[in-house]
Write a protein that binds this DNA or RNA. Structure first.
Lengths: 220, 220
DNA sequence: AGCGACCGACCGACCAGTCGGTCGGTGCGA
DNA sequence: TCGCACCGACCGACTGGTCGGTCGGTCGCT
């Protein structure tokens, strides 16, 4: 019963700060976000923030970690629903695109601002990319073991997959009158599956660019 | 004869500054590079720099543009040597990897720091990626026209290619005891060609990860 | 003398992090 | 039930430092 004693909303102040930071970081980027900005957005003060967090960097790190966790969780849950190796890979791709499509800000934080943070975070970013690449590699290795695709250098392939997905999402993020991200799924799926050596008949017909499917000119 | 009147070395002061900026930016990143740092490295003064350039940003932009030009030039020259469509694509991939392998700093500037700059440069970066994606798309469309690969959504495929290459290079850059970047070529080439629908017989056998070929663990 | 290249002290804006202080509870003794 | 000591969340003015950009001045040429 006695939980949110302070007539505060359901969420604790700490979480309010996290939310505000998430939003601000993903809008303005790490460097261009002043702690005062976060304080303002969270309707608190700088001092209040520094009561809950030791440094600005710590806020960012926590955000990164939990966001990445959420995404990985979604992917793993989506993959668990499938048993056939190639279908699992497809589910993973779809889960990522769907998540980002629904949460543009999440994408921004993970794939743009992360990088926009600065030298200190190179390591952080690196670990994040590494993590996703390994995740993919795991699925690819599974597929190889199941005989769904020929054995090959799954390490490089997984890196390539991640890079490809990343770039497609990035492109979409920066195209301001962006179409639906989901539209990129069919061609991307085909390209990725093929790249890993999935038999042609399993991939299906080459998807053609339908008018309006491709991203519009990215603006000035 | 009367060229470098000031008993300066061959290069003009302006170029010295550019070189120093290039080096410093690609080592420390844009935000962490102070104009004074550049001045120090160029053996000149802040005032001297501001005589030649209006802003710090302008230096960076110029560097980006010329570096990108150089890379595009290399790719185009390499591609021009081939006539068969798939071979042209292969040449492009090889040229990029070879260039980066030889000039780690160039890679850093173009693909890491660019992004590490901040909001202002999002546009810049975007244009750069766009440019390379279009370059690739051109080659793919050529290949389609020549009947070397089936028609499909070359836009997404080109974005995926760029993303894949980018990520492989990025991974290599951040792996500190990195192996040779060229080792990534065979598997990457295979993955990319296949993803675009190049017939299996043209791609050749699946390259296996040879011991030492893959990138070593990226360090903590 | 005049000029263009260059110098470096200085200015002002910005910002992460600190610290003394406020204030709404809460537990407890009378 | 009142009063009081105490506590921990929170506040915001302030500090220390950084850095882009400016400007008055110097120096070597012509």
């Amino acid at each position: 019963m006695a939980k949110t004693d302070t007539a505060e909303q359901s969420r604790s102040r700490r979480e309010r700060i996290l939310d505000a930071a998430f939003h601000t970081f993903s809008t303005k980027g790490y460097r261009d976000t002043a702690v005062d900005d976060i304080a303002g957005a969270a309707e608190t003060s700088k001092g209040g923030i520094y009561f809950h967090f030791p440094t600005k960097e710590a806020i960012f790190r926590e955000l990164m970690a939990t966001t990445a966790d959420k995404l990985v969780g979604k992917v793993e849950r989506a993959v668990a629903l499938e048993t056939e190796p190639v279908a699992r890979a497809e589910a993973a791709i779809r889960a990522v695109l769907a998540t980002f499509a629904g949460h543009r800000t999440m994408a921004r934080l993970l794939f743009l601002d992360t990088i926009g943070a600065g030298r200190v975070f190179q390591t952080e970013t690196n670990a994040l990319h590494e993590r996703f690449a390994r995740l993919i590699q795991g699925y690819l290795d599974e597929a190889v073991a199941a005989g769904a695709i020929p054995p090959h250098d799954t390490r490089i392939t997984s890196i390539a997959w991640f890079g490809a997905i990343n770039e497609v999402v990035g492109r979409w993020l920066l195209a301001d009158s962006a179409g639906k991200l989901e539209d990129a799924y069919p061609p991307l799926r085909a390209a990725l599956l093929r790249s890993a050596g999935v038999p042609e008949k399993r991939v299906g017909p080459m998807p053609m660019p339908q008018p309006g499917v491709e991203f519009p000119e990215t603006k000035r």
